[in-house]
């Protein structure tokens, strides 16, 4: 079995996500998010060349500009403003999420044939996309800060994007743009809410938000 560059890029993105599980500092976390998203943008360009789909180049460019650069920069700006450096998560052995992430990666590898589209030929990438999706959820549930939950959400979203790139001949460009626009607005709204949370609670630790229990 030969490994295509697409599968390699998908594996790279998934590795970044797993690495993120074990990282506590927000700056490296955001850098890894940027690298991971940039890899998916490169993949869009490679697939565009492979299938001769010119609109994939546009998509690659927009994904790179918005999701790989603008969003991580905005989030790291927010982290600086809020004077946040680290988020070591809710689990006491801080390496545990890393092991769980590795487990997810292996599970993704073995589940790949079940969710892949046979005619597309990127079975490995489908598994990596699934791994990204699950890792995003893992990051969301194992972190304390509202900001890291947004990062987890973006990893999850990258997984979906990776799946749509490698397993379909692409959604129409208008729909892809609409999705990216929605994600961008979601991050901006979340950013505003995070600043508000910080102002009224003087922290953004979501595990401490317990005002609304029945």
């Amino acid at each position: 079995m030969t490994i295509s560059p697409v599968d390699l890029l998908a594996a790279g993105a998934a590795m970044c996500a797993v690495w993120m599980c074990g990282v506590g500092g927000l700056t490296p976390l955001l850098r890894l998010l940027g690298v991971q998203t940039a890899l998916s943008a490169v993949m869009a360009a490679v697939l565009g060349a492979t299938f001769g789909l010119p609109h994939y180049y546009v998509l690659a460019l927009v994904v790179f500009a918005v999701k790989a650069v603008a969003i991580p920069v905005y989030l790291s700006h927010a982290a600086t403003q809020l004077q946040l450096r680290r988020d070591d998560g809710v689990l006491t052995p801080t390496a545990l999420p890393l092991f769980l992430g590795c487990g997810i990666l292996i599970a993704g590898y073995f589940l790949a044939p079940r969710i892949a589209v046979p005619t597309m030929g990127y079975t490995g990438a489908a598994g990596m996309a699934l791994a990204l999706l699950l890792t995003g959820m893992l990051i969301m549930v194992t972190r304390r800060l509202a900001l890291s939950q947004v990062i987890g959400f973006l990893v999850l979203e990258n997984g979906i994007f990776l799946y749509s790139l490698t397993q379909t001949h692409g959604m129409p460009l208008v729909i892809e743009m609409g999705i990216i626009f929605d994600v961008l607005i979601a991050v901006l709204v979340a950013g505003v809410v995070i600043f508000r949370l910080n102002r009224s609670f003087e922290h953004i630790d979501v595990t401490q938000l317990r005002g609304l229990r029945h």
Binding site: A146, Q149, S164, A190, V193, S200, G211
Partner: peptide, 23 residues
């Protein structure tokens, strides 16, 4: 504020699953 954060986050994740389903 707490309610809007919860709403925004849970529904965005939920709706991300719907996106995966759509794909």
């Amino acid at each position: 504020l707490e309610a809007s954060w919860k709403y925004l986050l849970l529904c965005s994740v939920g709706i991300a699953f719907a996106l995966f389903g759509t794909v």
